[in-house]
Every structure is written in structure tokens, then in C-alpha cells.
Design a protein around this nucleic acid. Structure first.
Length: 311
DNA sequence: AAGCAGGTCAACCGCCTAAGG
DNA sequence: CCCTTAGGCGGTTGACCTGCT
């Protein structure tokens, strides 16, 4: 689905507003070059697009703040960069994500968290903004449905991604990592065992990280605001990984394999019938335009009766 | 047909980092 | 070092679209 912004080539879109001259160095991070230009905001007109395209053809990408001084474009550098990167640069793919792309996004998100720009590097023609928008709408949908974010199907692939990702030294400790799941990721081995055990007892067949999360929520009270967003786990700290002895906590299949020791695990989780712990059937209403989405409906996924987590 | 709710998407905002002086 | 600047990134917002009642 697509729609076009109502705009006129003279740029006088009714929704467009202008920055005050004195506001160019505060607030939005855009700084004019002191020409007294009033920087325009809001949707871009085709005229502006043309100006920017011509500028890039002439001067190349980068030095975006110079666009103002070299052209009649009254846009800040950031706005130009964003417009170029997300809409004007060549080889951009438009339209719905293919199933392969969707699967790749899910897999990468399982590894990277909200690293949209990094994900975009692996999806030629797609922008971080597109991926982010896609993911956020997907999050909402799945949240409403009470479904886990990561289908079990992706877990095998995750490990490969993990290794590749680690090798390429992409992983960096991010101060803004999701605290909620960092907490889960930082569970000590014993705690993790406990969670697994608890999950096994409460959710026969619980075998993936979503189970763990749900289980953790059950134990700690899902009404906690910490879980309201139900964001996915990201890599725990290397120390935690080393200490706990597991390589990749979000890969359910590997959780079982990596935790080979305790016999009670064998007596519980591994005896269970995998993927058979539906508490209630979930009937997710999906928008027609994503009718083939491979992940929105997960057979035997663990959902609660009302589609939400218990409070 | 009108109103409403939810979905989609473009663009902005604020923060961060690296580079350069 | 410290400051300034440019660019990058993730989160958020708001306009518009679509489907349902």
C-alpha cells in the first residue's frame, strides 16, 4: 500500500511550517549558515527533490550543510541527508518487504536488537527507516496478539548470524541497549536454569526465549511496566556469556544444547512435547496485505486467552 | 455517507560520536 | 584537553490512508 503526500511544487503545503530564524541552532539540531535563511520543514516537494538530486549529482554525497549555500534549497543538512538516504538515492527498493526480507529482519533483530542501520546494510535497497517502521508495526501487531516476537523457526539461523555478527566485530556494547532484556540476558546461569525449569513446569514444551520471557513475566508480574513493550533480548554482556557458559541465550534450541549438564533439565524440558504448549488458540487477525507473512501466525505459539499477558 | 480506529510512512527530534581546530 | 561541527542513529510524532461500523 502506498499513498502520496499532498503537496504542491511550490512547496506551499498546508502542513508545512517554517522554523523561526532564531531557532536554527537549537531544538532540531539543524544549523543554518547564517544567511538568515528560514529553514523549511515538513514534506518535500518534487521541486526540492530535484534540487537535491542535482546537487548530489554535482557535488556527491556528504557535506549536507553545504546544500543550503550552494542551492536555493531551504533545508537543513540533516533533512537533506535523510531525504536523500531514504527516498532519492538510487537503487532504493520500494514496496512491501518480501518474505525473505521479512525473515532476515526477524533473524537480524534477534541478533542485533534495534540496530536498524546495521540491518539495512544487509538488505540492499532498504533503509533503516523502512526497517524500523516495519518492525514497529510488527511489534504492535504481535503485542496485541500476545505472540512471541521470534518464531522458533529462526533460531537455527540465529546462531549463524551470531557468529558472523561477532566475527565482523559489529557487536558493541550499547549504552542504550534494552534494559528489560538485558536483565533477562544477564541472568546468572542458575537463574536461567531456574527460569527454564519454571517454564518447563508451567509451559510444557516451553523451549524458546519467548517462553523464558513469558515465564519470567509470570514470575515477576507481567503488569510491571518493564514488560509493557515486550522488546526482544539482545546479546548479554560477554562476561555474562562467559560466566554462564551459554553462547546465545535467545536461541532456544541452543539453550537446551548448551546446558547439557543438569539432569533435571533432561527430566523436564527435553521430555516435553516441543511446541505443544498452546494455552489457548490464537486467532490473529492480520491485515490482508501481509497475508503471507511467515511469522505472524505461529503454530502452537504460547498465547494467553485474551491475547495479552496476564496481569 | 460519516465517523472512528488502527495502520503506514515520512520526517523530525534529541542524543551520540568522530573529526578537526 | 576542550570546543565546535557534521553526520549518524534510534525514538517519536503526526498526517494520511484504509477498513469497519
Amino acid at each position: 500500500m502506498s499513498y502520496t503526500t499532498v503537496e504542491s511544487d511550490d512547496g506551499m503545503d498546508s502542513s508545512i511550517h517554517y522554523e523561526s530564524p532564531g531557532a536554527d541552532s537549537i531544538g532540531n539540531g539543524c544549523r543554518s549558515k547564517g544567511k538568515g535563511n528560514v529553514l523549511k520543514k515538513g514534506p518535500w516537494s518534487s521541486t526540492e527533490d530535484g534540487i537535491l538530486i542535482n546537487y548530489v549529482k554535482k557535488h556527491g554525497e556528504g557535506n549536507w550543510n553545504a546544500v543550503q549555500s550552494h542551492t536555493s534549497l531551504a533545508r537543513c543538512g540533516k533533512s537533506c541527508r535523510l531525504r536523500w538516504a531514504n527516498h532519492l538515492r538510487p537503487n532504493l527498493k520500494k514496496g512491501a518487504f518480501s518474505q525473505e526480507e521479512e525473515q532476515l529482519i526477524v533473524e537480524m533483530h534477534a541478533q542485533m536488537g534495534n540496530k536498524w542501520a546495521r540491518m539495512a546494510e544487509h538488505l540492499p535497497g532498504r533503509t533503516d527507516n523502512e526497517i524500523k517502521n516495519y518492525w514497529n508495526t510488527r511489534i504492535k501487531r504481535r503485542q496485541r496478539a500476545g505472540l512471541p516476537l521470534y518464531p522458533s523457526e529462526i533460531h537455527d539461523g540465529d546462531l549463524q548470524w551470531s557468529e558472523e555478527y561477532t566475527k565482523s566485530n559489529i557487536i558493541r556494547v550499547d549504552r542504550r541497549r534494552h534494559q528489560d532484556f538485558l536483565q533477562l540476558g544477564n541472568l546468572k546461569a542458575n537463574d536461567l536454569w531456574e527460569e527454564l525449569n519454571f517454564a518447563s513446569s508451567r509451559l510444557p514444551g516451553a523451549s524458546d526465549p519467548s517462553d523464558l520471557v513469558a515465564c519470567h513475566m509470570l514470575r515477576n508480574g507481567a503488569s510491571s511496566s518493564r514488560y509493557e513493550s515486550y522488546m526482544p533480548p539482545i546479546l548479554p554482556s560477554p562476561t555474562t556469556l562467559r560466566d554462564s557458559g551459554y553462547r546465545f541465550p535467545m536461541c532456544s534450541s541452543n539453550i537446551k544444547q548448551e546446558f547439557q549438564s543438569p539432569e533435571h533439565f533432561q527430566n523436564t524440558a527435553q521430555q516435553t512435547n516441543p511446541r505443544s504448549c498452546s494455552i489457548s488458540p490464537c486467532d490473529v487477525d492480520r491485515p490482508p496485505y501481509r497475508s503471507q507473512h511467515p511469522f505472524d501466525m505461529i503454530p502452537n505459539s504460547h498465547t494467553f486467552t485474551d491475547g495479552m499477558f496476564p496481569t
